[in-house]
Each structure stands twice: as C-alpha cells, then as structure tokens.
C-alpha cells in the first residue's frame, strides 16, 4: 500500500484512490502516419522495466481524477517524487 502525494490535491492519499497507468513520458508521435510499423509497435507495446528508478503515470482516480507522474524505486518501492504532467522529474536514474 503506497502512500502517494497527489500534486493536485497537495496531500498524501492512500494507494487505493489511485490507478497506475504505466510508464510516463510516452509522447504520442505527432505524425503517426510517418511511423513505420516497427516505430508504431515500439510506441504501442515496448516499455521499460528498470530495476531502480522508474517514471510512471498515475491517476488520482477516486480523488481529483487528474493524471500526474511519479518517480518510484522499483526495488524499495520508495516514491521519490510526484509531479504534474508537463513537468520534468528531478530524480532520474542518472542523477
């Protein structure tokens, strides 16, 4: 049971109010028609599965219904930060 800081509600809430929507920062190609099948397949199906720092997209489903991003350690389950859509993470695997 994660304890998640919703950047929109500005407080911690219990995990059961949220849904994880998978890897964050997957931008839809601006010109899908220009993508090869391989490129489109990459966008559709291929996801990172890192050991350690991972950026995920979540929604505060039972709360404000807003999406946001989370930087999470997949080993310890520590949540390093949550941040709004359009913002960049301050914690990355490189940092």
């Amino acid at each position: 049971m994660l304890h998640i800081f919703c950047p929109h509600c500005a407080e911690y809430r219990e995990e059961e109010e949220f849904h994880s929507k998978g890897q964050a920062h997957l931008a839809r190609p601006l010109d899908p028609e220009a993508c090869s099948d391989a490129e489109w397949g990459e966008y559709l199906y291929f996801r990172k599965n890192p050991r350690g720092i991972h950026h995920e997209l979540w929604i505060h489903a039972a709360g404000c219904r807003k999406f946001f991003n989370m930087t999470r350690d997949t080993v310890t389950y520590e949540i390093k930060e949550t941040y709004k859509i359009g913002e960049k993470p301050s914690v990355t695997a490189q940092s």
Partner: peptide, 8 residues
C-alpha cells in the same frame, strides 16, 4: 500483523 510499504 503486517508491516507494509511506507509505514502502512
């Protein structure tokens, strides 16, 4: 009985 993530 159980100690879960983030002090739950």
């Amino acid at each position: 009985n159980g100690y879960h993530d983030q002090n739950f």
